[in-house]
Amino acid sequence: SASSSPVALPPFFMRGSIIQLADGELKRVEDLKTEDFIQSAEISSELKIDSSTVERIDNGQSPNAVVIQFSVGELKAQVCVEVLVEYPFFVFGQGWSSCCPDRTTQLFELSCAKLCVGDVCVSLTLRGMR
């Protein structure tokens, strides 16, 4: 069947959404910079930033989904996530990127680059994990 039930993506990716950084500063989602994530994580007692490199991008279970395989952190742990093609990730030094930037822009009015194998995304882990 060609029908697909659209899964609602989180509202905070919509252009204009107000994001609070760890120091209390408010920014619009489209104005976030790599430093904002790094500095917020530095303040956080629980979370730390990890670099997650895109290793593979495969088709997901539904036509609108992709399975992205990341290599996470210094240990290069392999982690797979299945997301909708329009789901944006924040790439270090580049900003918001998704597998289908046109769709992300259409749905969220959020300017996006194309997420590619080799891109290094901002991700989080818990501090204290060894």
Binding site: P10, P11, F12, F13, S17, I18, I19, Q20, L21, A22, L26, V29, L32, D36, F37, S40, S44, L47, D50, S52, F70, V72, G73, L75, A77, Q78, V79, V81, F89, F90, C121, V122, S123, L124, T125, L126, M129, R130
Partner: peptide
């Protein structure tokens, strides 16, 4: 009286995927 609409504020970490490496103890 018209109450002002409150604008939702989202925490920064909600935008970042939580990718926990598999642990081996």
């Amino acid at each position: 009286n018209v109450e002002p609409r409150s604008v939702p504020v989202f925490p920064w970490h909600s935008l970042v995927p939580f990718l926990a490496p598999t642990q081996s103890d």
